[in-house]
Simulated scan of single mutants.
Amino acid sequence: MLRPTTIRPVLRSSPRCQQCLRRSLFSGKGSSRVSQDLDLNKLNSQRRDYERHRTVFLAAGATAGIISFVYTAWKLKKALAEQKDKQKEKMAVKCDAPPIPTETFKTEAGEKRKIVVHDEDGRVIVPTGNSVVPAFPRTIDVKLPSTKEENSIAASISDKHGSEYTLVGLGVRTVTFIGIQVYMVGFYVATQDIAKLQQYLIKKINPSATTLIPAEKDALRKALKDVVEGEETWDTLLRESDCRSVMRIIPVRDTDFHHLRDGFVRSIAARSQRNKAYNDESFGVAMKDFKALFNRGSVPKKQELLLCRDEKGVLSVMFNSSRGKDLKSEVLGTVEDERLSRLLWLNYLAGSKVASEPARESIIEGVMEFVERPVGTVATQVV
């Protein structure tokens, strides 16, 4: 009996079947492309988030830096003020004499004035409110150099004109927004020339008066404080009144001539650029000569620098390097051009920006004391 035979079919794939097989094997290729696209979008989103977070972080850091800078400056200013108060207390304890009073008193007319005291030598002094330079003398004697021979030894002003100068006002010069003190400055006018100052300012308000009443004094005070009118008033007074005057500068910290010179030159240049009358060769030569006077070394604190303006406007620069009572100033040189000293004086007296606002205010109040007296009486009654 014949057994049935099992026939196993031999599967041979055709080329078409092989293609189908390949499609089945790589059927996930389309989904892989979609996955890659999704990954790129995710990366772009992450990149945008990173940039946004980075910008926020940088902005926060900059803000924190500004806040910390302002806070540190405030703390520094506060610490300097506390240190100054401690120094005043130490000086008061060490000094045998009582401290110089800085308070004011009222006159019969109800006006406030500073208390005037005397030092141990009997000289009248005026308190400054500064611990390093506590007082300025009410009057000083200045010996100007000869204008004919600049290099000669300083010669005394003739007895006819006198050599005494009377303090009009004083104040401190500060720099930077935290108010670092640089020097004390006092404005002095030749005692014999105060009558010229009185007459000009009184006639400006009331041509027929010899002294000003309170209402007229208020009008003069307002005029001198005005930016435009105040500068015009002092500019004309300096050109026409022939008043001799001195700017007395005492540093409250160690400095140098170059630093002082740069401050002077900047103020003169800023004012001269606003007026074409100063744009000539002779004024440029005067500026060059003025700069040359300060080609020197250091200026220790408490040393005296005198900027002197004579009746013709000639500027003389004098420096006292001694610490004794007998002050012998060295003449550094002179500048003949009147315009330079006038611009330098205006830097302290008037304008939109002055070197020392406290000094300008004090000078105006000092002028008020002069104009309330009859013309010509201040020279014989200086208090």
Rank of each mutant, 00 (worst) to 15 (best):
G351W: 02
V314N: 13
G333I: 04
L343F: 11
C308I: 02
V314A: 14
R323F: 04
V335N: 13
M318T: 00
C308A: 10
V317I: 13
L340D: 06
S329E: 09
R342N: 13
C308E: 03
E336K: 15
V331N: 12
R309G: 07
S322A: 12
D326C: 07
M318Y: 01
M318W: 01
L349C: 07
K353P: 01
C308Q: 04
C308K: 02
K312D: 11
D326Y: 08
D326G: 08
E336D: 06
N347K: 09
L327Q: 05
N347I: 01
L315Q: 05
S322T: 15
K328D: 00
G313P: 03
W345D: 15
N320W: 03
V331M: 03
K312I: 03
E330S: 10
V331T: 08
L346R: 14
S352F: 07
M318D: 03
E338L: 02
K325F: 09
R309E: 01
S316T: 07
G324A: 08
V331S: 08
E330M: 04
E330P: 01
D310I: 09
V331F: 01
L332Y: 06
K325G: 07
L346V: 09
T334E: 02
K312W: 08
G324R: 11
A350I: 00
S341P: 00
L343V: 10
R323I: 00
A350K: 00
S352Q: 10
R342C: 02
R339A: 09
V335A: 13
S321M: 04
D310M: 07
L315Y: 07
E338D: 04
V317C: 09
S352K: 15
K353Q: 14
K328Y: 00
S321A: 13
L327G: 00
E311S: 13
E311K: 14
R339S: 11
M318K: 10
N320I: 12
Y348A: 12
F319L: 08
S321Q: 08
R342P: 03
S341E: 00
L344E: 13
L327T: 10
G313L: 04
V314I: 15
G333W: 05
E336R: 15
V331A: 03
T334P: 03
Y348H: 15
K328E: 01
L349F: 08
R342M: 04
D337R: 14
S352M: 08
L349M: 10
W345G: 05
N347F: 11
Y348P: 10
S321I: 05
M318R: 10
W345V: 06
E311M: 09
N347S: 15
R323Y: 03
G324L: 07
G351K: 05
R309M: 08
S352R: 14
V317H: 09
T334C: 05
L332V: 01
K353I: 05
D326M: 11
L315K: 00
L346F: 11
K325S: 12
V314P: 06
L344A: 11
W345Q: 15
T334A: 03
S316G: 07
S321P: 00
T334M: 11
N347L: 02
L349D: 08
W345A: 13
L315T: 10
A350M: 02
E336Y: 11
G313V: 04
